[in-house]
């Protein structure tokens, strides 16, 4: 009896080791806390899509400004979430990172204004302008808007990550993820109206999953497996976000269940496109990368553009 108890304990202790011997372990760094923008990643982990393709993914949430491409380039993380413009910047600085999946086909970055101002387009935020606009420093799309519309008719301040200033001032506008800050503002009783930066002509893939060239070369099988897992995870999340939302809600207690549900619903049209319908979720095209590379040179964000073909790869099916 005593003996058999120990055997069971030993077997239980060994089980995870056995499981992990079969599944390849990889780390996955996020650039923000668990929120619907990563829903499909958590769903792939929760629903077993990663396990099905033979990978065991350890998801590591990050804070604002988490240096994800540096983590991947220096080998501290295997996979990470970044944006397409970061990939171009990283490559131009000599970091060999490659995008293999994109969460958003349409960049969800936008400008949130008070609907009471009656603005018709993103242009009117800057011209005739007026009031204050909060934007993070060093955002390529900030430079794009500046080049296109000029910032001299509006006072530009740093974005602090909140909506307090927006609620307090009717002439205040700010950067936003169209499925995030506007929902919070509405909940707080404001009348937000949003304009997508993509509609103004700057639309980089956002929420791209990056790996290092070395991983892609030496372990293409794992990359394919993770991408297959992501494709399934996102597909399932789009159909039913509830289970993954509950899982993320336990990790991120600052967001309530109804906000999770609302954000998951609001981001749907940005994730699917004609390209994803023709190919699969997360698919990227050379033309879009070429356009982005050209824009970033025009905006003087990078001096010399890296080759667009080397910025991304749609991995083969495993």
């Amino acid at each position: 009896m005593r003996m058999s108890k120990w055997v069971i304990v030993a077997m239980l202790a060994l089980m995870p080791a056995v499981a992990s011997a079969q599944n390849k372990k990889v780390t996955f760094a996020l650039n923000w806390v668990p929120e619907p923008e990563f829903g499909g990643i958590y769903e792939a982990q929760r629903g077993g899509a990663f396990a099905k393709h033979g990978v065991e993914v350890s998801i590591q949430p990050g804070g604002a400004g988490a240096p994800t491409w540096q983590l991947v380039a220096s080998g501290k993380a295997d996979f990470a979430v970044a944006s397409a413009d970061e990939v171009v910047i990283a490559r131009s600085r000599g970091a060999d990172v490659v995008a293999v999946f994109t969460i958003y086909q349409t960049c969800p970055q936008g400008i949130m204004v008070h609907a009471s101002r009656g603005l018709k387009s993103i242009k009117e935020v800057f011209d005739p302008g007026g009031g204050t606009i909060a934007m993070e420093v060093g955002l390529p799309y900030g430079k794009f808007l500046q080049q296109k519309f000029g910032f001299d008719k509006v006072k530009r301040v740093s974005y602090d990550g909140g909506i307090g200033n927006f609620l307090a001032d009717k002439m205040f506008s700010q950067q936003c993820f169209v499925f995030s800050e506007p929902l919070a503002a509405k909940k707080a009783g404001a009348d937000p109206q949003t304009f997508l930066v993509a509609d103004a002509g700057y639309n980089p893939y956002t929420g791209v999953i990056i790996v290092s060239r070395k991983t892609l070369r030496d372990d293409a099988k794992t990359v394919s497996a993770v991408v297959a897992g992501l494709t399934e995870g996102w597909g399932n999340y789009l159909t039913d976000p509830k289970p993954a939302n509950e899982m993320m809600g336990k990790l991120n207690k600052t967001m309530v269940a109804e906000t999770f549900a609302a954000a998951a619903e609001a981001q749907k049209p940005l994730i699917e496109s004609d390209d994803t319908k023709a190919n699969r979720l997360g698919w990227m095209t050379l033309q879009r990368w070429q356009e982005l590379c050209k824009q970033l040179v025009d905006l003087k964000v990078v001096e010399k553009s890296p080759a667009a073909e080397e910025c991304f790869k749609n991995p083969e099916k495993p």
Binding site: Q70, A95, M135, V137, G138
Partner: peptide, 20 residues
Amino acid sequence: GVLDVNPGLGIKVIEAKKYG
């Protein structure tokens, strides 16, 4: 900070960090 033509050093730091 205000992001006008003469940004302070703090803003310079964030911007440079973003551009690697």
